[in-house]
Design a protein around this nucleic acid. Structure first.
Lengths: 247, 247
DNA sequence: CGCGGTCGTGACCGTTCGGTGACACAAGGC
DNA sequence: GCCTTGTGTCACCGAACGGTCACGACCGCG
C-alpha cells in the first residue's frame, strides 16, 4: 500500500453543471470559470448522462429539480454505471431531508438555493481539492493571507490588520470584493465584473453599491483615503488594485 | 504569502478497519472498496497501533469490543501519541453511554451494531468529505485538556474549572461544541460545520440551537458574556474560538 | 409517577450589514 | 470655460441576523 506516484487526472479541473434555470446556470458557470475551472453546462438529466458518457469531469453540480429525470435519479444512475465522480446537489427546497436523500443517492455534498456564492465556491473547492493538491492551480490560488502597503489581510478569518496596527474585522462582502480585486493585481476590474463575482447569480445591486464598498476598503486600508494608492479608480471603467504603489 | 499546498499523500481515500469478526470485517471492507476507498484491515488493537505507526489513513473504523486492547483504549492511545485521525466507533451494544465513552476517548463518531450498511457508508463519506478539515485539526495539538483565559477544560471528564474557580460540569453537547471550536482556534467555524460534527449528518436542529450553546459556553467561560473574548461571532457565517485574546 | 437535567424551538428585541438616494466634486469632451 | 458624465462621500432605511429568554419535549432516575 505504498503511495503510487500521483498522476494528475486531467479532469480535476473540469466541472459539469446540470441546471435548467438559465440565469442560475450562467452565474454559476461564470464564477467557476473565473475560479479557473473548465466548465460545461447542460439543462437536463438526459443530456447530462449523455455528455458524461463521453467526457470526464472532476465534479458534477447537479440540480435536484430538473425537467424529465430528476437529479437524484441521475446521480443514482451514474453510480450504478460505476461512475464515482463527486456530485454536488443544488435544491430549491430547504428541506434538510433532501440532504440525506442526496447523500443516499450517492451525492457528496448538498447546497440549498438560494445559496451564497461564496459558500458554493468553497464547497466546490473542497471537493476538488482531493485532486487539487498536486497543482497549486489558479483554482486554489486563493491567497489565504494578503500583504500590501503594510496591511495584512487574512481571508480565511475575515480579519485584517491595517498599516497603523489597527485590527479590522471585515464583513463578508468587503472581504469578497477585496479578494476579487487582489486576485487581479494591477488589472482593471469593472464594476460589472465585481458584481458578477461577488453578488453572483441573480442579485444585481447598482454600481453605486460597489463604490461604497471601495470607499469602505479605502477607509480601512489607505493611509490617505482621499488619495488612494492601492484601490485606484479607473475612470469610466472600474477599479484597479495595486499591492505596492507604483502606478 | 499563501499556505504552500502540501504534497500530501491521498490519505483522504484510505481507511483502516479494526474488527475481529471476520464476517463483518469482510463485508465492511468489501463495501468500502466498492466505494473507491483504499482499505486495510486488522483484527485487534495491537495490530492497529502497529500498523498505524507506519501508515496514515483518513479514517479508522474501530470496533469497541476487541480481543486484547479494547477500542476505547486504542483510540485514547492514538490521541496521546498525537494522532488525530478521525475514528468511527462500532459497538455491539446500543448503550448510549458508549457514545459518551467514545467521545471521552477522543472518537469522532459512533455507530451501533447492527447497522445498515447504507448508514455506515454515509458516515464514512461524511467524515472523509471533511478530511482536510480534520487534518488541520490534527495539526493543532491533540489536547485532552484545554486552557484558555484562565479556564481549564478536561474533555475526557466533561469537566471544567472556569476563570473564577467555579467547577463546571459540561453537558455532552456543550463539550462537543467546545471541542470542535477548540480544534480550530482562530478559524471561522460555520454553524453547518458545527451541526454536522456535533449532531451528525442526518440530524437537523435549527441554527438557534447552536446559538444557544454558544450562549451557554459564554456564560460559563467568559468574564463578560456580553463582550466575549473567546467565543466570537462572525456575522453571517458562524463562530470563532480564540484561546487568548489578541485582536 | 414525579423530579431534575438536557436539549430543541419559537418569540422577541437589538444590532449589523447591505444597498440606495442625494449631493458635491472631479474628469473629460467640445 | 461649460456641460455632461462618472465618482466620492455621507446619512439613512429595511432586511437579515444574532442574543437572549422562556417554554415544552424528552429521558433517565428514583
Amino acid at each position: 500500500m505504498s503511495d503510487p506516484v500521483p498522476q494528475l487526472p486531467p479532469q480535476a479541473n473540469r466541472v459539469l453543471v446540470v441546471e435548467d434555470d438559465p440565469h442560475l446556470a450562467a452565474g454559476v458557470v461564470e464564477n467557476l470559470r473565473a475560479e479557473g475551472y473548465e466548465t460545461h453546462s447542460v439543462t437536463d438529466g438526459r443530456q447530462a448522462l449523455e455528455w458524461l458518457g463521453a467526457e470526464h469531469v472532476g465534479l458534477i453540480v447537479l440540480d435536484v429539480m430538473l425537467p424529465g429525470v430528476d437529479g437524484f435519479t441521475v446521480c443514482r444512475t451514474l453510480r450504478e454505471q460505476g461512475n464515482n465522480t463527486p456530485v454536488l446537489f443544488l435544491t430549491a427546497r430547504g428541506d434538510p431531508a433532501d440532504r440525506v436523500r442526496g447523500l443516499e443517492a450517492g451525492g457528496d455534498d448538498y447546497l440549498a438555493k438560494p445559496f451564497h456564492l461564496q459558500e458554493f465556491l468553497l464547497r466546490v473547492r473542497a471537493i476538488l481539492r482531493r485532486w487539487d493538491w498536486y497543482r497549486s492551480a489558479s483554482a486554489t490560488a486563493a491567497t489565504a493571507v494578503l500583504h500590501f502597503g503594510g496591511n495584512e489581510v487574512d481571508f480565511r478569518a475575515f480579519r485584517a490588520r491595517s498599516w497603523n496596527g489597527l485590527a479590522q474585522e471585515l464583513t463578508e462582502k468587503e472581504a469578497m470584493i477585496l479578494k476579487v480585486l487582489a486576485e487581479h493585481p494591477g488589472e482593471i476590474v469593472s464594476r460589472e465584473d465585481l458584481l458578477e463575482r461577488v453578488w453572483g447569480y441573480d442579485v444585481f445591486p447598482s454600481t453605486r453599491t460597489v463604490d461604497n464598498f471601495i470607499l469602505r476598503l479605502r477607509k480601512r486600508f489607505e493611509r490617505d483615503p482621499a488619495n488612494p494608492k492601492h484601490f485606484l479608480t479607473v475612470w469610466g471603467v472600474g477599479y484597479r488594485f495595486m499591492t505596492e504603489g507604483e502606478s
